[in-house]
Design a binder for these strands. Structure first.
Length: 843
RNA sequence: GCGAAAGUGGCGGAAUUGGCAGACGCACCAGACUUAGGAUCUGGCGGAGCAAUCCAUGGGGGUUCGAGUCCCCCCUUUCGCACCA
């Protein structure tokens, strides 16, 4: 029995042994000083929220990052591979409510548990640079940045309609509203409330955020497209229509008139404007309805329709309704009076919340005008009359103006320029670029977040907390309740303070910051995590940045990844870094699914990493996560597959332990002109090295890397009888096993460490040099190449690797099967692709 | 509706530049060893056929000596955007 156990791969023994040894050396995964002279490599996985449990998505994410980090270590790079915790946020407060545990305790104990899981997985992080965002030593720098940004005019406060999630009892950023619902509560409709809020002026960087995307060629096109859409740049013109008051005629002074500013991308069609459409929430509508109860009812109906559509998550499909206000507006270009309508398809928060309606040249306006019988006036004629060019709406900008007074005959493009100039000189409009991107609302009426470091003084107004008073600490003892308003507002010791300017009594700001502030710059902190006098040393950040490879889920394509790009640009403008972008390359891994759908508690299809590790070990679990699918695709978790990888690791273990004694005796001897089995296996080895090395450099198809290692092991195992008979000399065996272990090291670090020791190697496999493929050895001397007739496979011939086309052709034509098929026919053409195939065209 | 990605055995997937379709693994079948192991080893495993062969990469067309790969049309799935004026 005991003897049998020895012949068995037992990760439950091997892995904890190494885990203990590694834990005893905390510098094992530490980066070297910036002066070390090695090229640097910063590999980063997105930091997790400390929910208390790693899920398979984490395991996959970190297995990819860890394999890359280990590979780069072995390639001789100075590697920074850190980990931290995105530790502020609502779940801690919910847990506090449920279990009566303070958020801080709950969060910190979750961190301990998850860190243990990570260590059990054997992930190579330098814990000396660990960042925990809920600790004062971190969040004080959120406050510090807030103040610097305030000083630069990048932080401001305004009363505005905000997205309010009744479930979270707090405000949400635009980015956190998904289909009109809360991103955390997918069925909870977000309400609009009027609140005074703090904002970051991300729109100041809108153009740069957009332009930067073109240079981020190491990012997935998908993510760049999503960000482009989100930023939503649009070039056009703002034009003032004037309210034509009843009876006022044209006598009134232009300056006294009420302006209705509209935004349009097609000012060239303005002579075709037959109405002005206002969003139901437009300020002018409020003025109209105040004097018109019937209109008010109708407008309220429109607002209700919009709300319902939002609820259905389908604002785009809303049926267009509108109501005429009875008021009129004057087109500034031709003085024409057009009716003012209110319509449910006009968005209050885009552009000016008002449009000119040109039914002849806009699909939506056409639909609306048709429905309500509004005039449709063509003002653009196609350059070339073609089929369909006469039908309306005519949307192309490839045309010339008609029915447009002095502008007739101009091309659309020319007309746009001219009309913009006219508007500007006439003082009733201007060329304008607008963005869909809105400023980032960061106020949250929650407890578990970074306190905003501002003070309200009756005498001095808004006053910054002086730097030397940072951090503004979260009060430790607080009763978490579900009632609305800022929880900090209920803690008098927190709220009541003195004004730093006048020394008089004052009140602290009680809002906390959105947790996306925390994750916008955490990766800079890793470079200098213990710094207590600055967020980080700019020299260290400059050495490490940009991040060479960032790895995470595509769900952060907008929120986190746009905020951190913004933050990087702000820090650059504060002189704290030199780079424009945080990460050179971004990799978005696919989801881990089970039976075709996302793992979730409600579906009961959640696979626990702990269970997998307990059954098959960390190596098998990690390796399966890399083997089951290419990393950018979704991965269907199949436990039988993990068992298969575990069996494979067992084969490796048995093979290596069986031949390690022989291999050890080969140390120091050189391999001379290998032949026969030695040559065959060495050739396979060097092909495998080349394949895997290449994959790490570009494609990242780790599934085929693992498959390649399996092929190598299968070849060795198939030769077991010959190996046992001593057909392969000791130095060759050493080369084979040593390289096998090195290739395995990024994917199965525990087994690699164990076998490295078994082979009698000194030092850690982590810093052993990655094997180099010898192209001479990898080259086949004989090739099997297919012979086709008219593209159909007929036979396979064996030729020398350096055979000429003529030789190959002769060989192919001499084949019995070929002759049989070719009799009575003419060989029209012979195609020989050296090293690939022969194709005979016969007729 | 617009845009992107994808569609290959019973399953996950491979085929990096147009060149032997199905590597590697799972599941399954047969056998060996032993006999109760989630063990190991050997062999088989897209379909039809005794076979030679033929048919097969969502469907249809095309380019080519040759197409899973390139082009056109269509279908399905997933994701993103969706009255953005």
């Amino acid at each position: 029995m005991a003897e049998e156990n020895e012949l068995r791969y037992d990760p439950a023994t091997i892995e904890p042994k190494w885990q203990q040894r590694w834990a005893a050396d905390p510098t094992m995964y530490a980066a070297e000083p910036v002066t070390c002279g090695k090229p640097k490599y910063y590999v980063l996985e997105m930091l997790p929220y400390p929910s208390g449990q790693l899920h398979m998505g984490h395991v996959r994410n970190y297995s990819i990052g860890d394999a890359l980090a280990r590979h780069m270590w072995m390639r001789g790079y100075n590697v920074l591979h850190p980990m931290g915790w995105d530790a502020f946020g609502l779940p801690a407060e919910n847990a506090a409510l449920k279990n009566n545990t303070p958020p801080r305790e709950w969060t910190l104990s979750n961190i301990t548990a998850m860190k243990r899981q990570m260590e059990r997985l054997g992930l190579g992080y330098d814990w000396a640079t660990e960042v925990t965002t809920c600790l004062p030593e971190y969040y004080r720098w959120n406050q510090w940045f807030f103040l610097r940004m305030y000083e630069k005019g990048l932080v401001y406060r305004k009363k505005s309609k905000v997205n309010w999630c009744p479930e979270c009892a707090t405000v949400l950023a635009n980015e956190q509203v998904v289909d009109g619902c809360c991103w955390r509560h997918e069925t909870t409709l977000v309400e609009q409330r009027d609140l005074v809020q703090w904002f970051f002026r991300i729109t100041a960087y809108a153009q740069e955020l957009l332009d930067g995307l073109d240079k981020l060629d190491g990012w997935p096109e998908k993510v760049r497209t999503m960000q482009r859409n989100w930023i939503g740049r649009s070039e056009g013109t703002e034009v003032d229509f004037f309210l034509a008051e009843q009876g006022a005629g044209d006598k009134e002074q232009r300056s006294d008139r009420t302006r209705i500013r509209v935004f349009t991308t097609r000012v060239d069609t303005i002579f075709g404007a037959t109405s002005v459409q206002l969003a139901p929430q437009h300020a002018l509508v409020a003025a109209f309805t105040a004097a018109d109860a019937k209109l008010k009812t109708q407008v309220d109906e429109l607002i209700e329709q919009q709300k319902k559509a939002r609820e259905a998550g389908d604002l785009g499909a809303i049926e267009k309704h509108g109501v005429a206000t009875g008021h009129f507006a004057v087109n500034p270009y031709n003085g024409q009076r057009v009716p003012i309508w209110v319509a449910n398809y006009i968005l209050a928060d885009y552009g000016t919340g008002a449009i000119m309606s040109v039914p002849a040249h806009d699909e939506r306006d056409f639909e609306f005008a048709t429905k309500y019988g509004l005039e449709i006036r063509r003002v653009i004629q196609p350059v070339e009359q073609g089929e369909g060019s006469e039908s309306l709406p005519f949307l192309s900008e490839d045309g010339v103006l008609v029915n447009s007074g002095e502008y007739d005959g101009l091309s659309c493009e020319e007309a746009q320029k001219r009309l913009q100039q006219v508007a500007a000189s006439g003082g009733f409009g201007e060329a304008k670029v607008i963005f869909r991107l809105k400023d980032w609302g960061v106020s949250r009426q929650r407890y578990w977040g970074t306190p905003i470091p501002m003070i309200h003084c009756e005498k001095d107004g808004l006053v910054q907390v002086p730097d030397e008073q940072l951090p503004v600490l979260l009060p430790p003892q607080i009763e978490i309740t579900q009632q609305g308003g800022s929880p900090l507002g209920r803690v008098p010791e927190f709220v009541n303070t003195t004004c730093p300017k006048c020394g008089g009594p004052a009140r602290r700001e009680t809002d906390t910051m959105d947790t996306f502030v925390d994750s916008s710059w955490y990766f800079y902190r890793y470079t200098d995590a213990k710094n207590s006098s600055a967020p980080y040393d700019p020299a260290k950040a400059q050495y490490w940045f940009p991040i060479d490879q960032y790895i995470g889920g595509v769900e952060h394509a907008i929120l986190h990844l746009i905020y951190s790009r913004f933050w990087t640009k702000v820090m650059r403008d504060l002189g704290l870094i030199m780079n424009d972008e945080p990460a050179r390359r971004l990799f978005t891994q696919g989801m881990v699914i089970k039976d075709g759908s996302k793992m979730s508690k409600s579906k009961g299809n959640v696979i626990s990493p702990d269970d997998m590790i307990a059954s098959y070990g960390a190596d098998a679990t990690r390796m399966y996560a890399l083997f089951a699918a290419p990393p950018d695709r979704d991965l269907d978790w199949q436990e039988d597959g993990v068992a298969g990888v575990s069996r494979f690791l067992g084969r490796v273990w048995r093979l290596a332990t069986k031949y390690a004694p022989l291999a050890r005796t080969g140390r120091g001897q050189s391999i001379k002109a290998p032949k026969g089995l030695s040559l065959k296996l060495l050739r396979k080895l060097h092909q495998t090295i080349a394949k895997i090395t290449q994959d790490f450099e570009g494609r990242w198809h780790f599934n085929t890397c693992v498959a390649a290692i399996m092929e190598l092991v299968n070849d060795m195992q198939a030769a077991d009888a010959q190996l046992a008979a001593g057909d392969v000399p000791a130095p060759v065996m050493l080369e084979l096993l040593r390289s096998l272990v090195l290739l395995l090291a990024p994917f199965a670090p525990y087994l690699a460490a164990e076998l490295w020791e078994e082979l009698g190697e000194e030092g850690s496999v982590l810093h052993a040099a990655w094997p180099k493929s010898d192209p001479e050895l990898a080259k086949e001397d004989e090739l099997e190449i297919p012979v086709q007739i008219n593209g159909k496979l007929v036979t396979v011939i064996c030729v020398a690797a350096d055979a000429s086309s003529k030789e190959i052709e002769a060989l192919a034509l001499g084949e019995e099967k070929v002759q049989l098929r070719a009799t009575g026919k003419t060989v029209v053409k012979v195609i020989v692709v050296p090293g690939k195939l022969v194709n005979l065209v016969v007729r």
